[in-house]
């Protein structure tokens, strides 16, 4: 599984307003299972589709989106926010920089 495949899958399933994907595989290389299991990725997704859903349900949506696009997922660090939540966080923590990949 690579970053681009993840990005495409998440975009088509969730139409995110913001999507940030970071490949953190290097930081975890070498520990047990890291090689056999695929990469570590950090995702920050802001999407309307999360509105009204529990964190569990949000994560399941993301996992369902990337299911079957490649190798198994080793680890996803997920931040799943609705646009309102993202805005609230941005106001609370103005120092946090987020990169929007939305074109």
């Amino acid at each position: 599984m690579n970053k681009e495949a993840i990005e495409n899958a998440v975009r088509s399933a969730l139409q995110p307003q913001e999507l940030e994907i970071r490949d953190r595989s290097e930081a975890h290389a070498g520990h047990a299972g890291a090689t056999s299991d695929g990469g570590h990725y950090e995702l920050r997704i802001v999407s309307d589709k999360f509105t009204g859903l529990s964190p569990l349900a949000r994560h399941r949506l993301v996992y369902a989106a990337v299911d079957g696009i490649g190798e198994s997922i080793h680890a996803f660090a997920l931040q799943t926010l609705t646009p309102e939540e993202a805005q609230a966080r941005a106001q609370k923590r103005p120092q946090r920089r987020t990169i929007s990949l939305h074109s």
Binding site: P55, L56, H59, A77, L78, Q79
Partner: peptide, 11 residues
Amino acid sequence: FVGGSDIMTDL
């Protein structure tokens, strides 16, 4: 089932 480490962090 409660969740993984991200959900645990949020909770």
